[in-house]
């Protein structure tokens, strides 16, 4: 059930006009706004400011990115060798590439070490290699005379194949398995010192033994 005063207010409200409330609105102007909303609608300053800030931020980011790229290019250019450097590099003969026997399809399989001109493995050390190798080239007489003995020694140091060296240095030994129980058993035995060793120790460092003794006594007392 509605209030009587509500009904009364509603009727009064319906009968009232805008001018009764001192509200003066230019309805014609409002109609023009409604008719042409796209043309008349203005962007508020807040939005304009926001858009400007966004644009500025985007431009700044773009500029910084471009600057970074330019710096990177300059650094790369500086790192690359110039035309003079290229000429110098071209003058240096390229080191001959060694071809592995498996990779060389055309020619016969040759050992890698043989491709080099330096003296190689002496015949006495060629136990591990099955392939027969040519004897090491002898140094020319003039060159040998001009060089120091130490240099000669270094130069004549035979280059042994890696597998041969490994075989000679580390003989294959069957790994011994040690159990934890064995270790526990061995430790007391290792700790046991012979009388001779104890006497020797006392002779070498008598104060330490005295101190150990004194501490033992003290601990027993307290």
């Amino acid at each position: 059930m509605k209030n009587e005063s509500d009904q009364q207010w509603r009727e009064q409200w319906e009968a009232a006009e805008l001018k009764d409330f001192d509200l003066h609105i230019d309805t014609e102007n409002l109609w023009q706004k409604i008719q042409k909303p796209e043309k008349k609608r203005t962007v508020t300053f807040t939005w304009l400011r926001y858009a400007a800030a966004m644009l500025l931020g985007a431009l700044l980011t773009f500029g910084l990115t471009q600057l970074g790229k330019q710096e990177e290019v300059l650094v790369q250019k500086a790192a690359q060798p110039g035309p003079e450097d290229k000429a110098v590099l071209a003058a240096v003969p390229a080191t001959p590439q060694r071809t592995l026997p498996q990779q060389n399809d055309s020619g016969p399989a040759a050992p890698v070490r043989q491709a080099t001109s330096a003296p190689r493995v002496p015949a006495s050390n060629q136990v591990a290699t099955a392939r027969k190798e040519s004897p090491p080239m002898e140094m020319p007489v003039k060159q040998a005379a001009g060089t120091l003995p130490a240099q000669q020694e270094i130069m004549q140091t035979p280059i042994v194949p890696e597998d041969t060296r490994m075989a000679s240095v580390r003989p294959k030994v069957k790994p011994k398995t040690i159990h934890l129980l064995d270790l526990e058993k061995k430790e007391p035995a290792a700790q046991k010192q012979s009388k001779f060793m104890m006497a020797l120790d006392e002779h070498i460092n008598p104060k330490a033994n005295d101190m150990a003794f004194s501490t033992k006594v003290l601990t027993k007392q307290f």
Binding site: W13, L18, L23, I25, L30, W31, K33, I34
Partner: peptide
């Protein structure tokens, strides 16, 4: 628009205080 603008403005007047807001809502 002419028939209903007064009623719409009166309605907005009850809910809103600001004249600009009333105009905007009517629009």
């Amino acid at each position: 628009y002419q028939e209903h603008i007064q009623g719409i403005l009166k309605l907005c007047l009850r809910y809103l205080d600001n004249k600009t807001d009333i105009e905007d809502i009517a629009q």
